[in-house]
């Protein structure tokens, strides 16, 4: 009973913090609200006995929100903790769409005759997940790896100010044109 109440309370915190992201008056507060929502969901995942994934969500999202806060400060060009702002378009249509989607999903959840649980979780779940990842689901993980590498390469290529074409020209054949020449004796 206590666990059920705690789970529900965390759910309410997650939803309210999620709503706060778009209602608080500053970007910094919005970032912290999102972090709080992720922490609540991470704890809920831990309560669903998925300790490994739950703790991973907690650690990953805290770092991600810290990075996001830095980007906020970089791009907004002001002190994001002090500036009240509301920058939305089509607020009424957006609210209507989101409300309709939520109502449809809740209706589906309530009306669906959910099947009974099949099987029981293994006693050592984290070890079982480890074995699963390194044995039968190795291909899925091995597929994610190049996607991650492509993301890193794509992110760096997009974010670079000067690429090799700026340095060596369109045909990549002229000598490097750098604002600060490198090498010995520069």
């Amino acid at each position: 009973m206590l666990v059920a109440i705690a789970f529900l309370a965390l759910g309410v915190v997650a939803a309210l913090a999620g709503a706060a992201v778009f209602t608080v008056s500053s970007m910094a507060r919005a970032t912290y609200a999102l972090a709080l929502s992720f922490v609540a969901v991470g704890l809920q995942v831990v309560m669903l006995s998925q300790n490994f994934v739950g703790v991973m969500i907690l650690l990953m999202m805290m770092m991600e929100m810290a990075v996001m806060a830095v980007f906020m400060v970089m791009f907004m060009g002001m002190n994001p903790a002090l500036m009240p702002m509301s920058m939305v378009h089509g607020k009424r249509a957006s609210l209507g769409t989101a409300g309709s989607v939520c109502a449809a999903m809740v209706l589906g959840i309530v009306l669906t005759p959910w099947p009974a649980r099949r099987g029981a979780p293994p006693p050592e779940l984290t070890a079982a997940i480890g074995r699963e990842l390194l044995e039968s689901k190795m291909l899925a993980m091995a597929t994610i790896s190049p996607v991650m590498v492509a993301t890193i390469v794509g992110g760096v290529a997009l974010a670079l100010r000067r690429t090799r074409y700026d340095r060596y020209g369109d045909d990549l054949e002229r000598p490097a044109d750098d604002p600060q020449p490198g090498g010995v004796g520069r």
Binding site: G11, A15, G99, C102, M105
Partner: peptide, 8 residues
Amino acid sequence: IAAALFSI
């Protein structure tokens, strides 16, 4: 709860 988060 998940549906609420998704909709928000």
